[in-house]
Every structure is written in structure tokens, then in C-alpha cells.
């Protein structure tokens, strides 16, 4: 016990654990984001997190709570629009960037303390506290458990809504599960990689895992492994070369993607 407590005193250990926690949730969820072509959807939800931060600071509520609520509202709004068959491309672009801009403007109204904006945009994994770790791992376990529980139904609905309905699965309910999971991951990932790079942590490890996998389960598993590798590798890169940590994590993930693609092509 005391060894663990001592280890948690080390900011690098806390940072590594935060990255691993995010990867555990982002791997399977990111796989669904790739399969269902929800990349822009993830972006819009993540950008809304900045607005959540601003509102949380203005109303003096915990940042995670504010992020969660606003990300959830954005995800539900986008999901509702998608079901009504709107042409999503432009709509998502409008929502995504409006939420980001509105959030940045709103933050400037926060009185008193100067807000470290870049921490919210690019993450601040090195300043993760024990309480943050609790939130990150709580959210990650929640999302992973939710996805494992709904796995078969989610997969069937992702393959074909027709087949899902014929099997007694309600595709709208499964979409809601993913929407909820996305909002939780956004709230959890904000501290780790920041609002601008959350979607990257969803998409890049999963896309890299595609080249290594023959089944959906394998892809989700590899996405977790690659995500963990990126988190640890990014930390090492950041520590060794004094680069910003969040972007370094994404750079390592992107390198993994390139590596897999070039090997798989051969």
C-alpha cells in the first residue's frame, strides 16, 4: 500500500496512469467512432467541452461536471439531427466550431483568476492530481463496462440497423449508449489531451488497430494497446525532448498508425 502511495506522489506515474485510463475507454469507443463514421461527431462533442469549461468556471461548479453536461447536450443534439436525416457534414462543422468559438469567448468573461486556456485546449496531463485520476479511471471503467455490456447489440446495430431491428434490438437505444459514452470520454480526456485532440485519441489508435485485426474485438483490443503505447511513448517523448505532452501523445499514436499502414500495405 505504501509503495503505491509513494508512487502516486510522482507526477509522472500519475500522468502515465491517466493516459492508460483514457486509452482503456478510448480504444473500444474509438472503434465505434471509426466504424460508424462519427469522426466529426466526436470533434463537435469535444469542442463543446470548452464551452462546458467556461460555464463551469462562470458558475463555480467542477469543471468535469460542466464539461460532461455540455458535451452530453452537444452529443444529444447532433445525434437527434443525424436521426432526422439532415445533411450532416456542414451542420456538424457549424456546431463544432461555433461551440469552440463560443467557449473561448465565454472563458474571457470569467472574472478574477487568469485561466490557463492552453491547459484546456491541449491538456495538462503532468498536473493530474489523485482526484483527477479518480475521475479519469471512474469514467474510463464506466465507459468500458457500458460498451462491454451492450457489445453485441452495438455491433449488430452498427453493421445494419435493419438486421438489428429484426433481432429485436432498438438501434436508437444503442446510439444513445454511444452518445453517453462519448460525452463521458470527452469529460475524462479533457485533462489528458485537451479539447482539440480528444477526437485524435479516439480515431488514431482505432484506425491503426484496423490493420492488425480480423474481428471487431481484436480491433478494440489493439486500439487499447496502441493507445496505452501512445500515452507512455508520448510522456517519454515529452519528458526527454521537453515537448508539450498532449500533442506528443497524439504524435506517437500517429506514428503507430503510419507504421501499421506501411507494414499492412506490403
Amino acid at each position: 500500500m505504501s509503495i503505491i502511495t509513494t508512487m502516486l506522489d510522482d507526477f509522472l506515474v500519475r500522468a502515465a496512469l491517466a493516459g492508460v485510463g483514457l486509452a482503456v475507454a478510448a480504444g473500444p469507443l474509438g472503434s465505434f467512432v471509426v466504424w460508424r463514421r462519427m469522426a466529426y461527431f466526436g470533434d463537435a462533442t469535444a469542442h463543446a467541452a470548452i464551452l462546458g469549461v467556461a460555464l463551469a468556471l462562470l458558475f463555480s461548479v467542477p469543471v468535469t461536471a460542466g464539461t460532461l453536461v455540455v458535451a452530453l447536450a452537444m452529443a444529444l443534439a447532433v445525434s437527434a439531427l443525424a436521426t432526422r436525416g439532415h445533411a450532416m457534414d456542414a451542420t456538424l462543422g457549424v456546431l463544432s466550431h461555433s461551440a469552440l468559438a463560443l467557449g473561448l469567448v465565454a472563458i474571457s468573461f470569467v472574472p478574477g483568476v487568469r485561466v490557463d486556456l492552453s491547459a484546456f485546449l491541449f491538456g495538462d496531463i503532468l498536473s493530474v492530481t489523485r482526484a483527477d485520476l479518480g475521475v479519469i479511471w471512474g469514467g474510463a471503467v464506466l465507459v468500458a463496462a457500458l460498451l462491454v455490456w451492450r457489445w453485441s447489440a452495438l455491433l449488430t446495430a452498427t453493421m445494419s440497423e435493419e438486421l438489428a431491428v429484426a433481432s429485436g434490438i432498438d438501434p436508437r437505444r444503442e446510439r444513445l449508449v454511444l452518445t453517453l459514452a462519448l460525452a463521458v470520454v470527452v469529460a475524462v480526456a479533457l485533462k489528458v489531451v485537451g479539447a482539440l485532440l480528444i477526437a485524435a485519441m479516439l480515431i488514431i489508435p482505432a484506425a491503426a488497430a484496423r490493420g492488425l485485426s480480423r474481428t471487431p474485438e481484436a480491433m478494440a483490443g489493439w486500439a487499447v494497446v496502441i493507445g496505452i503505447g501512445a500515452a507512455l511513448g508520448g510522456l517519454a517523448l515529452s519528458y526527454g525532448a521537453d515537448t508539450p505532452t498532449g500533442p506528443s501523445i497524439v504524435v506517437v499514436a500517429a506514428a503507430a498508425f503510419l507504421g501499421v499502414v506501411s507494414v499492412a500495405r506490403r
Binding site: 471509426v34 466504424w35 463514421r37 452498427t158 453493421m159 484506425a207 484496423r210 485485426s213 480480423r214 474481428t215 471487431p216 481484436a218 480491433m219
Partner: peptide, 8 residues
């Protein structure tokens, strides 16, 4: 089937 989804 979207080829991004591996499925035997």
C-alpha cells in the same frame, strides 16, 4: 459493410 469494420 464498411470495410473499416473487420468481421469474419
Amino acid at each position: 459493410l464498411d470495410p473499416s469494420l473487420p468481421m469474419t
